[in-house]
Structures are given as structure tokens and as C-alpha cells.
């Protein structure tokens, strides 16, 4: 870790000013300090944003809930009303890393975290994400990599919260150039889909302020499978949310993590599910649609059947069957 200066900001505007061109925001610090320790990013100043007022609150509303970007993952996990209203969000939060990490990890940091690709995270490989000229994973050790990509980098998004937020059609409010901009999860990661250098669509100095979750979907579910039973990244994660009226799905959304640089969503599948009564056959058809264009590589093709199983199970869980 290189030397840096340090300051504590008390308003988003001063935080932006302090961070300038070469600084970084410090909240939970899990991702940032990890990157700094491996010299994968450099920052001349760390701006502690944990004192920014009002961003550490969970506020319930009629049409949507607001979760401040400084709310910790543990706060989400422990929030009784979230568990009741957005069970999938509770489940996703409880699967994040470990208790020690959940206690400090923030919503903003979880969404903004960088790739976990082991070539990117390795101090001595110069991969595409580090402005190198090849993706080592493509013909190398790609067991944890994407089934879908829009560019030459195959590192997937790993944020569990992004996956569940995508299914809930949540919107991140991002402070950019002094203006609040709204980005849904597809937009928040679109640049990672297009550009191998990008981890998400955030630009230097952008600050996630809060996430708004519409209350339109009364049911939500999240499942992930990892190599181990806890404290492990998902091999594949799946989130689904919908309202259920007379046994039929309304406004269903399915999103998957760890198989694409963006939370993987297929609109035709969502439309297909709309108005359907869920059963195993319907869930299977949806899973087929969602994975239709998957491009499995040498070592990650197992993610296809795994994702298929998780889609089916998550949907059935939504129905309350599993």
C-alpha cells in the first residue's frame, strides 16, 4: 500500500472536492484496502465518507424504500421489516462474505466493488482490466468466469446486492458532477459489459448516495451456490422478484450474478413469466430462455446447469414451494 493522505468529509460535495482526480472514497474499506495492498489501484488521498449525513438510513415508503449507500450489509440482514418485505434482499445480504465484513461493508461499496477475477486481483498479471493486452482467463483458469460478455473481458459481476436489486428493479442514485443521476442495475454495470477496463458504469468521483427499491413486487427470493457452505463467492447467484395476484406472477424479474459482467437479465424470460402460474415446467422454460445464449468456456460450463437449477429453484421459492 502506497502512502496517501486522509480526510473525513462531511458533505457529498466536499467529499467530491477532496477526492479530486486521484483520490478514493473510503467507507467499509474491504475492497479498497484490498486493492491498495496489492497495488492494483493507487490513491493519493482516501476520503472517509462514513460521516456523510443521512446516508446510513433505511427508510420505508409507500411506493419505494430508500436504502442509504452507507447502510451496512449487516444492517440490511438484521432489519426485521426488510426480511418481511424483501426476503430476497435479506437472503442476499446474509450470504455476503462473513460477519466481520458484513459489519463494515456498505451498500455503496458492495455495488461499486471491483472484479474478483483472480487474474485481475493478482499483483503480477497484466490482464485486460489492468490495461494489458490479453485476457488470461479466456484460455486459462476460467472456472469462476462469465458465460456472457459484451467485450473481451470475461470477469463477472459478483455483487450479491446488485443481483437482488436488479430483480427488484431498484435504482441507484449517483451523485455525478454535482447532479443526482438515476441508474438501474443494468445501467450501473453497462460499461463493464462494453469495456474491458470497467468494473461498472461509475466514473471517477461518482458517489452512490442511495438505492430506491419499488414496493411493487411483494415477493422476492435469492439463492447462491459456492464451493463452500459459507464465506465464499457465489459460483452462480440468482434473484427473482414478482408480485403474485390470483396465483399469477405480475411484473416478474429474474437476475443472475457471477455469470456476466452485469446482473444477467433476459427480458423475454421476464415477459414469458408475466401472468403465468408457476410450476416446474414454466420455471424450466424460463431458465432455458435465460441461458439460451450462454457461451461456456473450458472450465466454466458447469455454470450452465448450475444456473439452470438456481433459476428454477429461486422461482419456485418465490411461489413458496421450495
Amino acid at each position: 500500500m502506497n502512502a496517501f493522505t486522509y480526510a473525513t468529509a462531511h458533505s457529498p460535495a466536499s467529499a467530491r472536492q477532496l477526492v479530486a482526480d486521484k483520490g478514493a472514497y473510503l467507507a467499509g474499506g474491504n475492497d479498497l484496502l484490498g486493492l491498495l495492498k496489492e497495488y492494483l489501484v493507487s490513491a493519493d488521498i482516501l476520503v472517509n465518507i462514513k460521516s456523510l449525513p443521512g446516508l446510513d438510513k433505511i427508510e420505508r415508503g409507500e411506493k419505494f424504500w430508500t436504502i442509504g449507500s452507507l447502510v451496512t450489509v449487516a444492517q440490511i440482514e438484521d432489519h426485521a421489516e426488510i426480511k418481511e418485505t424483501f426476503p430476497g434482499l435479506h437472503e442476499a445480504a446474509s450470504e455476503v462474505a462473513s460477519q466481520q465484513i458484513r459489519n463494515v461493508a456498505t451498500v455503496g461499496g458492495n455495488l461499486a466493488q471491483h472484479s474478483r477475477c483472480w487474474y485481475f486481483r493478482h499483483r503480477d498479471t497484466q490482464c485486460l482490466k489492468k490495461d494489458g493486452d490479453l485476457c488470461y482467463a479466456l484460455n486459462g483458469e476460467n472456472r469462476y468466469h462469465s458465460l456472457f460478455t459484451g467485450n473481451t473481458c470475461i470477469s463477472p459481476v459478483v455483487s450479491s446486492l446488485a443481483t437482488i436489486f436488479a430483480s427488484l428493479d431498484a435504482t441507484a442514485i449517483v451523485l455525478r458532477d454535482g447532479q443526482e443521476t438515476r441508474q438501474n442495475m443494468a445501467e450501473l454495470y453497462q460499461r463493464a459489459w462494453e469495456n474491458p477496463l470497467a468494473h461498472n458504469s461509475l466514473k471517477n468521483g461518482d458517489l452512490i448516495l442511495r438505492v430506491e427499491i419499488p414496493t411493487t413486487r411483494s415477493r422476492s427470493a435469492y439463492l447462491q451456490v459456492s464451493d463452500r457452505h459459507a464465506f465464499d463467492w457465489a459460483l452462480v447467484s440468482c434473484a427473482a422478484a414478482a408480485d403474485v395476484v390470483d396465483g399469477k406472477l405480475k411484473s416478474p424479474r429474474v437476475a443472475l450474478g457471477s455469470i456476466s459482467p452485469v446482473p444477467h437479465q433476459v427480458e423475454t424470460a421476464n415477459r414469458f413469466l408475466d401472468g403465468k402460474v408457476l410450476d416446474n415446467a414454466t420455471a424450466t422454460q424460463a431458465a432455458d430462455m435465460i441461458l439460451k445464449d450462454a457461451k461456456p468456456l473450458e472450465h466454466n460450463a458447469y455454470k450452465v446447469p448450475l444456473a439452470h437449477a438456481l433459476i428454477r429453484r429461486t422461482l419456485l421459492k418465490l411461489k413458496g414451494d421450495a
Binding site: 473525513t8 473510503l26 474499506g29 474491504n30 484496502l33 484490498g34 462514513k50 466481520q100 463494515v104
Partner: peptide, 19 residues
């Protein structure tokens, strides 16, 4: 490296002393 900040367990290796 787990220590408690208040009542909360955290990894002290990934937390700056200054914060």
C-alpha cells in the same frame, strides 16, 4: 485479527487505525 469496534466484530487488518 478480529477485534470489536464498539460491540461489532471487524477485521482489524482491513481497517485503518486513523478511522
Amino acid at each position: 485479527c478480529t477485534v470489536l469496534l464498539g460491540d461489532t466484530p471487524i477485521y482489524s487488518c482491513q481497517k485503518l487505525a486513523i478511522e
